[in-house]
Design a protein around this nucleic acid. Structure first.
Ligand SMILES: [Mn+2]
Ligand SMILES: [Mn+2]
Ligand SMILES: [Zn+2]
Ligand SMILES: [Zn+2]
Lengths: 125, 125
DNA sequence: TTTGTTAATGCAATTGAATTGCAATAATAA
DNA sequence: TTATTATTGCAATTCAATTGCATTAACAAA
């Protein structure tokens, strides 16, 4: 009896599923569930999903966290090492296909990656 | 008469100069200037340096901003497009030599880059 | 050197995303 | 059905960062 299935979790999961390669901010999700649950619940559900490895979390240079379903990850093999993109005009964040490949200097051990490119998307450029 | 030279600015500039490839957080700098100036002044000086292009600013995945002197930039050519590294143990942040090279999908325009690798540095690994 | 303008500063108050404490609620194992 | 305890809502709190405003001081002009 570790985690329980609840309406709140299912609702948020559905929202994330429907936005596969477009990470959503806490605020984005709050708006979509407005009235259905408390904002603190959104925080806690997102954090539990993240802890359990169902979603990945990126900190964008607007200072907000964005969350997206893990796509090419398996329980035993997480690799959230792709770039993300944020549009300065429409604010949308996207997962890019390209993986981050860094040649670290000797002795450094890589644990995780948080790479964000900021600019203008095709619709706004 | 745009910007004025003040003791506060000179002090902070000296600190950043002495820490060339090791970006410092607001908090780091505050400690070094403790008693000499107000913390709000530190914020404002750092922001003015950043606006004027003297330093670059990165948001690390600990949620804090880190600042470092621009090294290979000229007035007309800024390129803060290198990776950064943060050690999970000693918390130190470093500028890496390697530049970020992303092949953006068609139509996307890149403006800036905020790429951080998190892991363990040689001393802590 | 003196003076006037206004950028810079200190201090207190405020913002806003994120977190925490706690009592009430509800999922689920027994 | 019942007992256990994870989950939720609500209020309060945290903490870095920002803002307002009166005071100070840099520096251009006289
Ligand atoms: Mn994943
Ligand atoms: Mn630079
Ligand atoms: Zn856009
Ligand atoms: Zn270290």
């Amino acid at each position: 009896m570790k985690r329980r299935n609840t309406a709140a979790k299912q609702t948020i999961l559905d929202i994330l599923q429907a936005s596969r390669s477009v990470p959503l901010s806490q605020e984005d999700i709050e708006q979509k569930v407005a009235g259905k649950m408390n904002r603190v619940t959104v925080y806690r559900v997102l954090n539990s999903f993240y802890e359990d490895g169902y979603i990945h979390k990126i900190l964008a240079d607007d200072g907000k966290y964005y969350f997206a379903i893990c796509l090419n990850c398996r329980e035993d093999d997480h690799h959230h090492d792709h770039f993300h993109f944020r549009c300065l005009n429409c604010q949308k964040v996207e997962c890019l296909q390209e993986e981050v490949k860094v040649q670290l200097p000797g002795g450094y051990r890589q644990e995780s990656v948080n790479c964000l490119i900021t600019g203008y998307c095709p619709e706004c450029a």
